[in-house]
Each structure stands twice: as structure tokens, then as C-alpha cells.
């Protein structure tokens, strides 16, 4: 737990709307150890999701460096970033974002299509991931045949199926009822405790944040303890 896994150095991020610069993050410095479970909290518009996107390599900082597992990702090309994400990141969205035309099995299999695994190997990985999230009996169900909690569990299975070290979750319980929220948070805790996944979770729900080891707050683009 002592190795620094994610390192943000002097991050500044702003967006441009026409000629108007809108700063989002100011001088963010953050070190996250391997196997850590960090919750990023803060009000809407505080920059939580932007910070998560920078760590995921789906957005780039205006200034500063993002280093994940020793790799400077802020300088990588789009294609190199895509490859890097497929090998290192598992992403969980607030609204699950499953492909409606694919069933649970096929949704979880999706990231594996980018690997060199054959069909049999992919099947084994998908079945393992779905069994971890407790949905082995829902493999053939399509997203519209699943509850919100089940959809998010499929999304978690999709995030872990490639066995990434880093899992990024953006408001993973934001669209769920209390019981489903509990299930999802227990699952994330298990991934962290049992499988040693480093997890960074954005949330504004204090109950969800309780499961994390560390809670950091963002407010108006600045990071607080």
C-alpha cells in the first residue's frame, strides 16, 4: 500500500467557451498509493469528474502532469491513450452506460474484444467477472431486462474483466436506491480488499464515501483534505 500509484502534479485545467476561459481545477497535487480506496467528494461543478477524467486519460490537463503506475499519460497520443486505458483502467459510470443491443455477457465481453484472447478465453473471463458481481444467472439478459443495481453490477463486471489495477468510478451509486447502493459499495469494497484494486470514486454521497479509506474534498477547483 506504500507505492505511489497515481500521481497528480500541479494540475491546472480550464475549458474555453468561445473566447472565455473557464478554470475548473487549480494547482492539484495528489498522490494515491497502490491498493488505496479514495473518495473524491464535493458539490456539483467542483471539478470532481474532470479530475477523474484526467486520471483516466480521457481528458488532458492544461498544465501539470498525470502519472499513473509510472507512466506519464498526459503526453500520450489519442491512440496510445486508448490502448493504455484498455489495459490499465476500469471505468464505472453513474448511468451504467451499457450497450442496449448487447446482453450482459456481451457487454462485459466488449473490452476483451480489444485483446488477443480467443473466444474460449473471453468466455472464461466474462463468466468469472459476472460471478464476482453475482450475476452469473443474468448473462443473457439485456440492459432493459435488468434493474438499475443489476445494470451497475454488469458495468462493474465490464470494468474488471480485463483485470485492470485502477478502477475509476464516477458517482457509481448516484442513480440507485438505497439497497442497490449498499450492494454496489460492498462490491467495490470487496474489489479493493479482496482483489487489491486501487479505486478512485467520485461521489457526493457521504454514506458511499464511508467505504473509502481516504476522503478528499474538492471545492471550486481546489483540493482539500
Amino acid at each position: 500500500m506504500s507505492e505511489v500509484f497515481v500521481q497528480l502534479q500541479s494540475i491546472y485545467k480550464s475549458y474555453w467557451r468561445d473566447s472565455l476561459e473557464i478554470p475548473v481545477l487549480y494547482n492539484i497535487n495528489l498522490n494515491i498509493a497502490e491498493g488505496e480506496f479514495l473518495a473524491l467528494m464535493g458539490p456539483s461543478g467542483s471539478g470532481k469528474t474532470t479530475l477523474l477524467n484526467l486520471i483516466a486519460g480521457i481528458d488532458k490537463p492544461s498544465q501539470g502532469e498525470v502519472i499513473v503506475n509510472g507512466q506519464h499519460i498526459d503526453g500520450l497520443s489519442e491512440n496510445a491513450l486508448a490502448r493504455w486505458r484498455s489495459q490499465n483502467i476500469g471505468f464505472i459510470f453513474q448511468f451504467y452506460n451499457l450497450m442496449p443491443v448487447l446482453n450482459a455477457f456481451e457487454n462485459v465481453e466488449l473490452p476483451l474484444l480489444l485483446t488477443k484472447m480467443n473466444k474460449k478465453e473471453r468466455r472464461q473471463h466474462v463468466e468469472t467477472a459476472l460471478s464476482i458481481v453475482g450475476l452469473s444467472d443474468r448473462m443473457k439478459h439485456y440492459p432493459n431486462q435488468l434493474s438499475g443495481g443489476q445494470e451497475q453490477r454488469v458495468a462493474i463486471a465490464r470494468a474488471i474483466v480485463t483485470d485492470p489495477n485502477l478502477i475509476l468510478a464516477d458517482e457509481p451509486t448516484g442513480d440507485l436506491d438505497k439497497q442497490s447502493e449498499e450492494e454496489i459499495m460492498n462490491l467495490l469494497s470487496r474489489l479493493n480488499g479482496e482483489f487489491n484494486k486501487t479505486i478512485i470514486m467520485v461521489t457526493h454521497d457521504p454514506r458511499a464515501a464511508e467505504k473509502a479509506h481516504i476522503i478528499r474534498h474538492l471545492d471550486k477547483g481546489e483540493l482539500y483534505d
Partner: peptide
């Protein structure tokens, strides 16, 4: 557009 964004997040490249 949103689905393509999700796929790109998962690691799908422009060619895909």
C-alpha cells in the same frame, strides 16, 4: 455519440 464515447473510454480507438 455517447455510446461511442463510452467505447472510447473502454479503450476502443478511432479505427474501431
Amino acid at each position: 455519440i455517447s455510446e461511442y464515447a463510452v467505447m472510447k473510454t473502454l479503450g476502443f480507438r478511432s479505427i474501431h
